[in-house]
């Protein structure tokens, strides 16, 4: 695990709370405003996931798909993704930064060049939705050479063999997808999520972050009671789409993240 991510999870553990992992799509609604939005969200998060816009985001629901479309329409390039990551890093030396996206953009760039640029920009890990452990041959070496964690997903459909595989091939943390569905759908059953997360934690030392479908403070608090991290994506992206103007979006993001974080604290202390 990257030393920085290790410190993030250690800090959160000592504070008796789960890490808050916030997602935004880079370049949404355009590269300039995106920087301010990312900085506003990053100030309240332990880890930030920066989405690399892609023309065909197959695992995303309408909210994040629309964010990708807005970013691409505004002329966001992969270089912008690195610049934005770097800006977040400069402002937040100890935050975890994860790049998230689909295989084709880094593949076309070349994983070696991609990993080199990401490392330079201060990125800690990379989550490529459509590169399962079995296809790691195209990227694992390059990521490792540039000290980037390879974040792998597990889902309710993953049987034990796949849990072992992901824990062996992945690093940084396990991203547990709380539901069989796309981003932005309704969160799955909390008891089932808790059981599966406990099972993964019994197999591996790696922290487990839970995402997909977490929107309310109550949900974040409930998941934060047993997970090492709580990932919130569509709900943050919605703050951009639903506000009247940029200033309101910046403020709404910050307020939303603060509220989630506060709720996660209270629940842990109460429990």
């Amino acid at each position: 695990m990257s030393a920085r991510l290790a410190r993030v999870f250690k800090r959160c553990k000592e504070a008796h709370r789960a890490a808050l992992v916030g997602y935004l799509t880079a370049g949404d609604p355009n590269p300039e405003q995106s920087q301010e939005l990312l900085l506003s969200l990053a100030a309240e998060c332990d880890i930030i996931e920066i989405g690399m816009p892609f023309s065909d985001p197959m695992a995303d629901g309408p909210v994040i798909e629309a964010a990708s479309e807005r970013a691409l329409a505004a002329g966001t390039h992969i270089q912008d993704v690195f610049h934005l990551s770097q800006a977040v890093r400069l402002a937040n030396p100890e935050i975890g930064i994860i790049l998230m996206g689909y295989a084709n953009v880094p593949y076309v760039m070349g994983f070696e060049r991609f990993a080199e640029r990401a490392e330079k920009a201060g990125v800690d890990g990379v989550l490529i939705v459509d590169i399962p452990p079995e296809e790691g041959a195209i990227c694992d070496e390059a990521l490792k050479a540039h000290n980037l964690d390879r974040i792998l997903l597990l889902s309710p459909t993953s049987p034990d063999e796949r849990i072992h595989l992901a824990c062996a091939k992945g690093s940084g943390f396990i991203y547990y997808v709380s539901l069989t569905g796309i981003t932005g759908a309704e969160m799955g059953d909390i008891i089932e999520i808790q059981n599966k997360v406990a099972h993964i934690q019994s197999i591996s030392e790696m922290p487990v972050c839970v995402g997909f479908g977490i929107k309310t403070a109550a949900q974040a608090a409930a998941v934060g009671r047993f997970a090492d991290g709580v990932v919130v994506g569509s709900h943050f992206v919605n703050q951009i789409a639903s506000q009247q103007n940029h200033h309101q979006s910046v403020a709404a993001l910050s307020a939303t993240a603060m509220a989630l974080r506060a709720a996660m604290h209270r629940e842990i202390n109460a429990g």
């Binding site: 197959m58 695992a59 295989a103 939705v129 459509d130 590169i131 399962p132 079995e134 296809e135 792998l152 997903l153 597990l154 889902s155 309710p156 459909t157 993953s158 049987p159 796949r162 992901a166 997808v177 069989t180 569905g181």
Partner: peptide, 20 residues
């Protein structure tokens, strides 16, 4: 075994779809 035809093909799918 992984569905590769030379350097092409494979199974570049999200984890949720791997088991199905």
């Amino acid at each position: 075994a992984g569905g590769h035809f030379g350097r092409f093909g494979g199974r570049f799918a999200a984890e949720t779809l791997m088991q199905p």
